[in-house]
């Protein structure tokens, strides 16, 4: 097992290197002059050339890539033009908020998706099944940013059930920063009112973000449950007089959960990508919003850094899912 983890982590480093290399090539074959961009619109030709030499932009591409890698390894991810701060500093501020949002969304997708999948499978081809299936099919097609806008309009503006956006009410003081995730920090400092406020702010962005994942979880869980419920051991359990609830919860669901778990890993990546869309709608101060702003202003160092961080998160999440898979399924464990 440890050997597997070690091998996968090593693989991850190689993949991230590859990712950086691809990004680096894309950034540098693109039209546009980074030296001119950094120098600003009013710079003279001499000033641009000075900056080009200062930043090493006059050196050949492979050499610049090695220099860039060297600075990444030492934690220097460059400076953001649009915030004017070190990219590493920006990421430390914004990443926890994104992580909090994504984790909450996944939780929401699991908590809603698994029961809905089970209900659909148990009521196969009945009304509940049809409704849930329509819901599941639409979820994947739904543009998250549009769903977010509509939820914001109806649930926040019309009904006033949820706040419009942001992480906290303007009036409340944020808790002491420990993890950077407001809900966790509020709980750690024992501030329950702030915790509730933070959850209320989380809910709508998380719901919009979770929609495609929710839909896929329902689909996979339903299909797996349908298959499992037809197995011989379930028929056997039924014949033994075991109650329907126990059959579903203790016998069938356990086996149906494994493919669902794999789907969750896959959707984690989609969610990380989706933050770019949803954070803007709800004014959520995370890396998604940061990346969108950086991309608009062709601010390349933050973009590289965000790609790196989100790529690493996605790979780590998949590693975790695979390990959980192995821990839960003895057949997989035997192969490891």
């Amino acid at each position: 097992m440890l050997k597997l983890i070690y091998r996968r982590l090593l693989m991850m480093v190689v993949m991230l290197l590859g990712l950086l290399a691809i990004m680096f090539v894309v950034a540098n074959v693109a039209p546009g002059d980074p030296a001119r961009l950094a120098a600003g619109p009013d710079a003279t030709r001499d000033m641009v050339e000075t900056i080009r030499v200062e930043r090493g932009l006059d050196k050949p591409l492979p050499q610049r890539f090695v220099i860039y890698l060297g600075s990444v390894v030492t934690g220097d991810l460059g400076t953001s033009i649009h915030t004017g701060r070190a990219v590493l500093h920006d990421l430390a501020i914004y990443f926890p908020a994104t992580l909090e949002l994504v984790l909450f969304s996944i939780g929401l997708a699991i908590v809603l998706g698994i029961p809905l999948g089970v209900i659909a499978a148990v009521n196969h081809n009945q009304l509940a099944d049809h409704i849930i299936r329509i819901f599941a099919v639409s979820g994947v097609a739904m543009p998250m940013f549009w769903l977010g806008l509509m939820l914001q309009w109806y649930l926040a503006l019309e009904l006033n059930w949820f706040p419009l956006g942001g992480q906290l009410d303007l009036m409340s003081d944020p808790p002491t920063r420990i993890t950077g995730m407001l809900t966790v920090d509020a709980l750690l400092t024992g501030n329950f009112a702030i915790f509730l406020g933070a959850v209320a702010h989380l809910f709508l962005p998380a719901l919009s973000l979770s929609f495609p994942a929710l839909a896929s979880i329902i689909r996979v869980n339903r299909a797996e449950m349908l298959e499992t419920l037809n197995r011989d051991y379930i028929t056997n359990a039924r014949a033994q007089g075991i109650g329907p609830l126990r059959i579903v919860a203790a016998y069938a669901l356990k086996n149906a959960l494994l493919p669902t778990l794999a789907m969750i890993g896959l959707r984690f990546g989609w969610m990380l990508g989706g933050t770019v869309l949803v954070e803007g709608v709800f004014d959520w101060p995370g890396v998604g919003l940061y990346a969108a702003k950086a991309a608009i202003s062709s601010d390349f160092e933050p973009i590289m850094a965000v790609t790196l961080v989100l790529g690493a998160s996605f790979m780590l999440a998949n590693l975790l899912i695979d390990l959980t898979y192995a821990a839960l399924d003895p057949r997989v464990r035997a192969q490891v």
Partner: peptide, 25 residues
């Protein structure tokens, strides 16, 4: 296949945004 893996190792939308960021909107 390894190059393919690298491309699939990052959410597609993020990579697309990064590329547009480099090329310009």
């Amino acid at each position: 296949m390894r190059v393919t893996d690298i491309f699939l190792s990052i959410p597609g939308l993020i990579l697309a945004i990064a590329i547009v960021g480099a090329l310009g909107p």
